[in-house]
Amino acid sequence: MSTPLRLILFDVDGTLVDSQATIVAAMRAAFGAAGLETPARSKLMSGVGLSLPVLMKALVPEQDERTLDRLVAGYKEAYHDIRQSQGTAHSPLYPGARSLLDALFEMPDLLLGVATGKSKRGLDALIEAHGLERMFVTRQVADHHPSKPHPSMIDTARAETGVPAGDTLMIGDTSFDMQMASAAGVAGIGVTWGYHDRSALDSARYVVEDFAQLASVLGSFWTVDHE
């Protein structure tokens, strides 16, 4: 009997790449251009993973829609400018990320995908910058879905690949990723090197400390019954 296809979905910011400095710089530029005080770094990072309109509303709920729209546009412009000027340095891959992706990509029964709060433009640019164009068979972005933790991204990735929930994993660094996995009926693996505290990953099936541990969990996950 042939091995079924399995789908592994990755969050991006805080999971595959460390974009913290760029996110904070773009936020400061956006808030400064709008004449507003930038929220504390800890508050900014706690919302990473949400789509931008939802994140801005959470950061400054007292602001009107026009101001929120201005903040979203300002952030996108600033982030784009930083990406253009710094190249891959604006969002470097975490140590161990590329080697794990390469190893998983070579496994014929695995499909890799992305489920991210980034825009399509931002994700496509990041993938091109790191030479990952062939890596992901499905790319789910904020432009086309409700914000995490709504399960739409995972549901759509599964529909595109034809992989059932029991053969799908979601890997991410935030509570939103793990809540999205739960809402979609798939297992979540939380990573501790990202932007949410370990305590926020309480709904994860596993929590891992580094890419070596992640590789070990992935290597054994489907060898026992996880239903």
Rank of each mutant, 00 (worst) to 15 (best):
V208I: 11
R205D: 09
S220C: 03
V141Q: 05
M56C: 14
L100M: 08
V12S: 00
D13V: 05
V141W: 00
Y75T: 08
S175A: 07
R83F: 01
I189W: 06
A183L: 02
F136P: 04
V224M: 08
Q63I: 03
V207S: 05
L101M: 08
K118M: 04
D18R: 11
D11L: 07
L126R: 03
D69P: 02
R98L: 14
L111Q: 15
H130I: 11
G35L: 12
A159V: 06
L218D: 11
S42Q: 09
D18Q: 12
G117C: 15
S19M: 02
S147N: 05
E227D: 09
V191W: 01
R83N: 15
A103V: 06
R66D: 11
V208L: 10
F31H: 07
M178I: 12
P53H: 01
P146Y: 00
A181L: 02
A25W: 03
E106N: 14
T161C: 08
R98E: 13
H80F: 13
A157H: 06
A30R: 12
D64A: 03
F105K: 13
R158I: 00
D124V: 09
T3W: 00
G131C: 06
G14M: 04
A183N: 14
V141A: 11
A25Q: 07
A115C: 08
A26L: 03
S19N: 05
A25T: 13
D225H: 07
V12A: 00
L110Y: 10
Y79D: 00
R198K: 15
I8T: 04
M1Q: 13
P61G: 11
P61M: 02
R121A: 13
H145M: 05
A103T: 15
S91T: 11
D69V: 05
I171A: 04
P61F: 04
A29W: 01
H226Y: 04
S99I: 11
M1W: 10
G166N: 12
P39Y: 02
L132Q: 10
F136N: 02
H226N: 05
K120H: 13
A157N: 15
A181K: 03
G113F: 02
V163P: 03
T3S: 04
F136Q: 07
G162C: 07
L123Q: 12
A125L: 07
D13F: 04
A187N: 03
E133C: 11
I23H: 02
F221E: 03
M170K: 07
D109H: 12
D177M: 06
F211S: 08
M180F: 03
E106A: 11
W193D: 14
K43I: 06
K43A: 14
P39A: 05
I23C: 00
